[in-house]
Nucleic acid binder design. Structure first.
Lengths: 327, 327
DNA sequence: TTGTAAGCGTTATCAG
DNA sequence: CTGATAACGCTTACAA
C-alpha cells in the first residue's frame, strides 16, 4: 500500500507537497503537481480514509437508520436521500439494528437520518448533546442539532376519515400502529377530531402493529363483531401493510365478503404492493423520494451550521376501489 | 470530546494504561481498571473509530453493494447477512451506486459482498489484487481474495423448464434478463439443455431486463405472435419481477386471457410480491436469508485468512396456480 | 513554490 | 503491573 510518503520519496519532494498536489492546491506548480499525480497513479496510490478523517474530523458519510431491511417501503426514500447527498459529495449508508448505533458517536458518519422507532429518543438526544447532527423522520424532538421532517399525519388521517364519512359510512374502525409510534398517535388524534366534528359517527379503535399480522387480526375481530351476513364496516388502517393483511385474511377466510362493497378499507403510505391489491387500495399518498431528499438536505444544512426549520411532507388521498358508498 | 489522554490525566496514569484498561487487558490491576472505567464514564468518553482503525487497519464493518435500494427483493438476504455478521462482531452497511465504491479501497470497510451487476468485474479484481476480500453473488470470478456464493441457476432453470414440459407444453418462451447478467446466461444455458434433451420442444428466447417493463413487453410480443383467440403459451420468466410485469400487462390489456389456462408462467426468486399474484405464481424458490448468511460467513473466513471453497445455494420448484396442463 | 513539523486519537512495543 | 514512546497516514500552519 503506497502512502504519500512513498510518493514523496519517488518524486523527491516532501509529503506536504504531495498532499497539496493530491488535493489540487494552487500552492504547487503545475508541473510538480503533474509529476506527483503521475507517480501516484504509477504506485496505485489510494488515500486512507481513516487517516484523513482522523485529521479532518469528518468522513463525508451519512447514515440512515431503519428498523429493518425490508425495503419494500423504503426504496424510493433511500434513492431520494442518496441522490441529494451525492450531489453534495456525501455517501449514504443504510444501517439497521441497535448494534450499528456506535457509528454515530464514534464519528464513523457525519450525521444520521432516523426512521426507526426502536431508536430511543433519549439516546438521540444524548448524541445531539455531543454535537452530532440528526434528522428524525418518525418523532418530534426539539434540539439545536436535531431537525424533523415529518409526514403530515394529521392531514392524511383527516382525508382518510372524511372520505369514509363522505361515502356515507357511519361506523368506522381505526386500526392503529403500536402505541409507541408517533405517527400512529398523530393519526389517531386526527381521526378522533374528525369524528367529533361529525355527528352520529361511531368510532371503534383497534390497536394494530403496522404489520400484516395486525391487519389480519383486526379483520378477524371485525368479522367476529359483525352480525351474520350483515357486514358493513369501514376501516381505516393506519398503514398499507395492515390493509394488505386485512385483504389477505378476507381472501382466505371470508371469500363471501367483497372489499369495497361489504367492507371498505383505507390505508396509508401507498406502498408499491398496494397497487397490486384487488381491488386497488384507497390510501394516503406522498412522495417518498422527496421525503428522503428533504431529510438529506436538512441534514447537510445542519452539518454546515445553517439554521433550519422543521419540515413537513404533504399528503394526498389516492382513491382506489376499496371504498364504496355506505348504506 | 474526551480522549484517552484526558482520562489518563484525570486518573493520574499513562495513556497506555488507559488503553489497556479500556480494552480489558489483564495487564492492569482490577482496581485501576475500575477507576479508569469510572472516569471514562464520567467524562463521557467514546473512542474514535478513525484513530482506532488507522492503527489496527480494520474497521469491523462489512459493506454489501446492491444495484439499487429497492429492497423488495433483498430484505431477507440482508437480514441473513446482518445476523451472521453481528455474531462475529461485524457491522453491516448497505451501499449502492458507483459513488460508494471508494469505501473498499480506502479501507472504510473490511470486506464487501457484491450483488450488483453494474459493479465491473475488472474493478473487483483490481481491489482483490490490492488485498481486499470480496464475496460475489452475481458472477464467477476466480481470485484468491474472492469467494463466490451463487444460486444454483442450472438446477432452477432446469426445474422450471421441465415442469412446463411435464405439464404438456411444447412451445416454450424464455424471457431472459439483460445479456450481461451472469444469472441470466446460466439460466438460458440450462433451458437450452433441457430443450435439447426433449424432442419436439420449440423454444423462443426473448431478451428481457429483469424489470417489470421487460415482462410487460414480452407479454405484448407473445400476444402479438399468437393466433387470434388461440393463445396457448408457456413462459419461463427468468425472474419474478418480469413475471409480475407479465401479469400486469395481461390484466390490463387482455382480460380475456387466463393465466394458468391460456398462458402458463413460471418465475424465479419467489419474491414476496409473487405470493400476492392472482393466480399464485409458480416459481423457483430458495432461502434468501441463508444466501446472505452464507455470503457473510465466507467473507469472514476470507478475512481471517481461512481457505474457502465456492458455495452454491440450492433451489426448489414452488408450484403455484400459474401453470396448468397443456393441450 | 516547497519543506518542516506538529498533531489527530489510538494501539502496541518496549523498558522499567 | 505501568509508563514512555513510536508509529498509523494524512492535513495544515508556519518557515524557508
Amino acid at each position: 500500500m503506497a502512502t504519500i510518503k512513498d510518493i514523496a520519496k519517488q518524486a523527491g519532494v516532501s509529503i506536504s507537497t504531495v498532499s497539496y498536489a493530491l488535493n489540487g492546491s494552487p500552492k504547487v506548480t503545475n508541473e510538480t503537481t503533474e509529476r506527483i499525480l503521475a507517480i501516484a497513479k504509477e504506485l496505485n496510490y489510494i488515500p486512507n480514509a481513516a487517516a484523513r478523517s482522523l485529521k479532518t474530523r469528518e468522513t463525508k458519510i451519512i447514515g440512515i437508520f431503519l428498523t429493518d431491511f425490508n425495503g419494500a417501503f423504503y426504496g424510493d426514500l433511500l434513492q431520494g436521500t442518496k441522490d441529494f447527498l451525492a450531489r453534495k459529495g456525501y455517501e449514504l449508508i443504510v444501517c439497521s439494528g441497535k448494534q450499528s448505533h456506535w457509528m454515530l458517536p464514534e464519528r464513523m458518519i457525519d450525521g444520521a437520518i432516523i426512521l426507526d422507532v426502536t431508536f430511543e429518543s433519549e439516546e438521540l438526544v444524548r448524541y445531539a448533546d455531543r454535537g452530532h447532527k440528526l434528522v428524525v423522520l418518525d418523532r418530534e424532538l426539539s434540539h439545536a442539532n436535531i431537525n424533523q421532517v415529518l409526514l403530515d399525519n394529521k392531514a392524511g388521517a383527516t382525508l382518510a376519515t372524511e372520505h369514509l364519512i363522505e361515502e356515507g359510512h357511519r361506523k368506522i374502525y381505526a386500526v392503529t400502529g403500536p402505541g409507541s409510534s408517533y405517527d400512529s398517535k398523530q393519526r389517531l388524534q386526527a381521526v378522533m377530531q374528525v369524528v367529533e366534528r361529525n355527528a352520529g359517527i361511531e368510532l371503534i379503535v383497534m390497536e394494530g402493529d403496522f404489520n400484516k399480522e395486525g391487519g389480519e387480526l383486526a379483520a378477524k375481530r371485525i368479522m367476529a363483531e359483525s352480525e351474520e351476513g350483515l357486514v358493513s364496516a369501514a376501516v381505516f388502517c393506519f398503514n398499507d401493510e395492515m390493509a394488505i393483511g386485512m385483504f389477505n385474511y378476507l381472501a382466505e377466510y371470508r371469500p363471501d365478503i367483497r372489499i369495497g362493497e361489504h367492507i371498505h378499507i383505507v390505508g396509508f403510505d401507498n406502498m408499491e404492493l398496494a397497487s397490486y391489491s384487488q381491488p386497488r387500495l384507497t390510501t394516503i399518498d406522498y412522495s417518498k423520494h422527496k421525503w428522503g431528499a428533504l431529510a438529506a438536505e436538512q441534514l447537510v444544512k445542519l452539518i454546515n451550521g445553517d439554521t433550519v426549520e422543521h419540515e413537513r411532507i404533504y399528503v394526498t388521498l389516492l382513491k382506489g376501489k376499496s371504498v364504496g358508498p355506505g348504506n
